[in-house]
Write a protein that binds this DNA or RNA. Structure first.
Lengths: 206, 206
DNA sequence: GTTTTTGTACCGTCCGGACAGTACAAAGAA
DNA sequence: TTCTTTGTACTGTCCGGACGGTACAAAAAC
């Protein structure tokens, strides 16, 4: 019946469609009818691959988790400096690639994040990922507390943006990211380097 | 009809009830029937005070916003040091009082936060509050970028906890909070010495 | 010949909201 | 005082519609 390979083209197409719907209308807009119509398949086909709506949502979550892990690995792979590599890749994955930036992904991630809130069944994969990242950050950060703070700040920024709660000034945001990144190497004291990263502005999308 | 004073006892009772429901079952569990039954009033009464479900949700959000502002003001009022006062109060309000801590409020805040995701109609009050806080932080922080980072880190921690995404080790968390707080006073942090290289990681990718 | 897809008809449930009506108290009118 | 009006608070029922999921027979596709 359903537990087929996730690489199945129809499965991917359905997940893409579901993602688009969720990005536009949120989780409430996600119905079998809508998915089937938008994907151009019969409703029965959607049911065939995803026996319940929870299955569909879970699959979306797992795909996002995998994608982020891939982006993280990629960023780590191209970083020659081992110290603080994980948390630096964390910054890169969320703000330097294009996989997890932009309006569309903000909306998708926002909606999916919202769908996670205190729903233990859905949280498992994400919690595991969070713990894994945290362990890795602790392990390779010269200053684990500082590394954790960087991660939390990135999280805060990410949540605010994907949920649409805050809109930081691009210049300020660029300065924040530059400062956070400089901390990952473990040499400076956070409160000391107050003057050099201000004009380090990047173009970065609003 | 509906637009009565929010201090009306029945209104408060209904909001309390709605909050409890949301804390237990999330937003999806919030129905007129449930609220009326749990509050011990007729369904019509709920309709009388909240003409639509959106009204009810909006009222819950606004009450939470007010509460947080009150907690922030309170924390600021008892802080003699003007430098970084806002962001320090931000830390205190989220981690030192009991108004915004604990399992119950994590669940309420998580569910409500989730309900905000990219729904412009509901976001207004929260966005305004976010901007207000940001302006205040910028205004009284000795180092605005650092102040913003502290705020973002607090946000990240707060989101992770209230959405149930992460569970940080209490010791680590305490160390993080202590470090963040120490930064709020300005640059007289210990060992504020050298700031050399800094361009080592600035090969900017985007 | 097994997997995948289609198409349609259907069911039970739940929910938002409309609505008509009751209870009552305060404010005038007599 | 007594009667009438008016507005507020609250009640309980009802309905249209949507949605998740079932059932199934049969056709493609691999």
């Amino acid at each position: 019946m359903s537990k087929r390979k996730t690489s199945h083209p129809t499965v991917q197409k359905l997940l893409d469609t579901a993602e688009t719907i969720v990005a536009r209308d949120g989780l409430v807009g996600l119905t079998y009818d809508r998915v089937s119509k938008d994907a151009g398949v019969a409703k029965g086909t959607v049911l065939y691959h995803f026996a319940s709506k929870e299955d569909l949502i879970t699959a979306m979550i797992e795909r996002l988790v995998s994608r982020f892990d891939a982006a993280l690995s990629h960023a780590m792979g191209s970083d020659p400096d081992a110290r603080g590599r994980t948390v630096r890749a964390y910054i890169a994955a969320t703000h330097e690639g294009d996989a997890f930036t932009g309006e569309y992904f903000d909306r998708v991630n926002g909606a999916i994040t919202a769908a996670l809130a205190n729903t233990p069944e859905r949280l498992a994969a994400v919690q595991a990922q969070g713990r894994r990242h945290q362990d890795a950050i602790i392990a390779d950060s010269p200053d684990p507390v500082l590394g954790t703070i960087v991660r939390m700040a990135i999280d805060g920024l990410w949540f605010s943006e994907s949920l649409g709660l805050m809109n930081y000034d691009p210049m300020l945001k660029a300065a924040v990211l530059a400062r956070l990144k400089s901390w990952t190497y473990g040499k400076e004291t956070p409160a000391a380097d107050t003057h050099q990263d201000q004009q380090k502005g990047e173009k970065n999308a609003p």
